[in-house]
Design a protein around this nucleic acid. Structure first.
Length: 708
DNA sequence: GAGTTTGAAACT
DNA sequence: CAGTTTCAAACTC
């Protein structure tokens, strides 16, 4: 599968990138769109992902549109009749049957879609379908359905841009394990389009095993068009014919989630011939986990959930992530959720049962956008295994119960919002995790994605990608992890709480009576809903990212400072390192371009930063000098079997040591350390110098046994 | 670390 | 929508 490089992706038109510019649901007339050319024969298999010469965006105003992919190289195939159901919000689900299969909660009231990538040789027809799934929301739901229709392949040259989508049809029905969960991964897919070139770097190994049951491939893909993720790409729509034996698919998918890029590879015990095709199969889903990487990186964990038969979701956290949803097709009769029942669009067919079982791990280190690195295979053995490692910011996907109520506001949820199926009830439930203020909060993150089928021994491939986040380098992002909150009264369920506001569970915080955790999911959901009721964009990033870079960043709402002059961190603009704008209602603002106070502050900050860098460099240099001197100095004095240690304390070494001590003293002074602390630091530094000298002395002794 | 200041969020 | 209160972070001592 070919994916477009991040650079190319960044060049995409804003219309495509900016989901806000695309209003789907609300702006569209209620009337149905023309029925998709359902009659048009579908090839048994449809390329799962294609290279598109151009990016297709779904325009809100259009009642009916047809998107055609002219690219070749389709790698994934879907069975005929495969449809994409596009939730207004940009969630996209594919199904071969009807709107029934569409998870109501997912497709409902999600107004924006940025773009869709259609399998090569196929046309994507998008229709608006009115009618609310009975079980779903309070208000009638209108949504769009799309259908892939085969189209003549057109060869294309040069890099193509493909937008994200990872899809998997899931269905628990017929599976032995009711608790199985279908993992859903979503994100922007970025692939490099060289047809021949295998996907690089990030890979999600996904093994899929088919089930003999009636599991014609139905795959739904729910994609959140959240702001940043504006680029949405439907990558895979796979369906497998019911009769086809177990087919496996090795399917590389590149997925860029927000700024994060990762390549997804599906592999199944399949014949090579089948490679490159995406097949939806009955699968049981393994718990999905995202594992955070190292050090400061942020990792997220998805906890295995019991899910309702047809809905599986996974969220890939991380700021610019969109929630992706893998929806299991339901058996036509039972589940049928409502969306189908009310559907007036004749083109929509009942969904076929699909089951899926997979474990997914994602590893997406965020670093440089241009850099995509390494793939490290890491098999997952236990379906129930929940992996998580590191320390800090964790993002958990957890079961929730009342999401339908929140659904209408899904579009307001920030990237990274987590939707997870609820336990028990047949109703769709989600845990909603709003994402961070993207532009404000660095998200050092390593997300590991791995998916493997339960029945397959194929080794999942773990990949990593490094992408820049909000213009921050990896080190910056890592160094600016969110602070633990100290909430005492809000139960961490109000926007006062940074954790909550950023869509994260409290972890290692100092809060009191915290409800922002797995144990209080219902309260948390209510709180989220309340926040969204008050402000539909409560979880959206406050600082918009300018098209041209940082200079265009501005506070969406503006500050309201009165006493701080907007030159303290009380001011959200100043805190975000942006200048106040006309949006602000501040008084006595000094946070503007020509402000002398601001310039002074900036200079001081710069000077301080330079100072720190100089000190670090000086210390490093001195250390290296000491080491160098110790290695080069060869005193003539020897004793017995070797040189006496003190003979290494030459004048140069002594001077360098003194420099180190002075440097340490200076640092202590600069940081206003008490004298006692300063003395201790100096002594410790001296100890380190001595150890180094002794170490080299010992080394020299052993290194030159002849002379010594 | 305790107390104060500040402005966003929440409430009326 | 404006005024007030609540809240937690930022800041000061």
């Amino acid at each position: 599968m070919d994916v477009v490089s991040p650079e190319l992706n960044s060049l995409l038109p804003d219309e495509i990138m900016d989901t806000e510019a695309i209003a789907m649901e609300e702006e569209l007339p209620a009337e149905h769109l023309a029925a998709p050319p359902q009659s048009e024969p579908e090839p048994p298999q449809v390329p799962m992902e294609t290279e598109l010469p151009e990016i297709v965006s779904l325009c809100p105003a259009t009642t009916s549109m047809q998107i055609t992919s002219t690219s070749t190289d389709a790698q994934c195939s879907t069975s005929s009749g495969t449809q994409l159901l596009l939730a207004p919000s940009g969630l996209i689900s594919g199904t071969t049957t009807s709107a029934k299969t569409t998870g109501p909660a997912v497709t409902q009231n999600l107004p924006k879609i940025s773009s869709v990538t259609v399998p090569a040789n196929h046309q994507l027809i998008i229709n608006k379908v009115s009618g609310a799934p009975a079980a779903v929301g309070k208000s009638p739901v209108s949504y769009f359905s799309s259908q892939f229709t085969k189209k003549p392949a057109v060869s294309t040259a040069g890099p193509m841009i493909t937008k994200l989508i990872i899809t998997k049809a899931l269905n628990n029905k017929g599976l032995s394990s009711p608790a199985s969960v279908a993992p859903v991964v979503t994100g922007r897919v970025v692939t490099q389009s060289t047809p021949v070139t295998p996907p690089r770097n990030l890979t999600i190994g996904e093994t899929v095993s088919t089930v003999p049951q009636n599991t014609s491939g139905n795959s739904k893909v729910a994609i959140s068009p959240l702001k940043s993720p504006s680029k949405l790409t439907v990558v895979s729509m796979a369906s497998q014919s019911p009769n086809s034996p177990q087919k496996s698919v090795t399917l590389p998918l590149s997925v860029a989630l927000g700024q994060q890029i990762l390549t997804v590879q599906q592999s199944a015990a399949t014949s090579p011939a089948k490679a490159g095709t995406c097949q939806s199969t009955a699968q049981t889903v393994k718990p999905v986990q995202t594992v955070g990487g190292v050090g400061t990186s942020q990792f997220k964990t998805i906890i295995p959930l019991t899910t309702p038969p047809n809905v599986q979701q996974i969220q890939v956290p991380g700021s610019r992530f969109h929630y992706v949803r893998l929806v299991t097709a339901t058996t036509g009769s039972s589940t049928a959720q409502s969306s189908g029942s009310t559907n007036t669009n004749p083109s929509i067919q009942p969904a076929k049962p699909v089951m899926m079982n997979a474990a997914v791990r994602m590893s997406v280190p965020i670093v440089s956008a241009q850099t995509i690195k390494q793939v490290v295979p890491k098999p997952l053995t236990s379906a129930a295994q929940v992996v998580t490692t590191s320390q800090t910011p964790q993002r958990l996907i957890m079961p929730a119960t009342h999401l339908p109520q929140i659904q209408p506001n899904l579009t307001s949820l920030p990237p990274g919002t987590v939707l997870a199926p609820a336990h028990g009830s047949g109703n769709m439930g989600y845990a909603v995790l709003p994402a961070p203020y993207v532009t404000q909060i660095p998200q050092p993150a390593f997300v590991t994605l791995t998916s493997s089928s339960t029945f397959s021994t194929a080794t999942p491939i773990q990949t990593q990608a490094r992408l820049s986040l909000n213009g921050l380098s990896a080190s910056e992002a890592a160094s600016r992890q969110r602070k633990p909150c100290n909430c005492t009264r809000s139960q961490c369920l109000k926007l006062y709480c940074d954790c909550f506001a950023n869509g994260e569970f409290c972890n290692n915080c100092n809060c009191v009576n915290c409800f922002n955790n797995l144990d209080h999911e219902s309260e948390r959901l209510k709180a989220i809903k309340a926040c969204l009721d008050r402000n539909p964009v409560a979880f959206k990033p406050k600082i918009g990212k300018g098209k041209q870079g940082e200079s265009d960043r501005r506070h969406s709402k503006g500050c309201n400072c009165k006493k701080s002059g907007c030159l303290k961190n009380y001011c959200e603009c100043y805190e975000a390192k942006i200048m106040c704008s006309s949006m602000c209602k501040c008084m006595g603002c000094k946070n503007f371009e020509e402000s002398p106070e601001r310039k002074t502050l900036m200079h001081l900050a710069d000077a301080a930063e330079v100072r720190v860098q100089q000190q670090t460099a000086a210390k490093t240099k001195l250390s290296s000098q000491i080491s160098d001197l110790l290695t080069r100095t060869t005193p003539a004095i020897t004793s017995g079997g070797g040189k006496l240690p003190y003979t290494f304390a030459t004048k140069e070494v002594a001077e360098a040591t003194c420099d180190c001590l002075l440097e340490q003293a200076e640092q202590a002074e600069l940081t206003n350390q008490p004298q006692a602390v300063a003395e201790r630091l100096i002594l410790e530094e001296f100890g380190r110098c001595l150890r180094r000298i002794i170490s080299f002395a010992g080394k020299a002794k052993t290194d030159c046994p002849i002379n010594c």
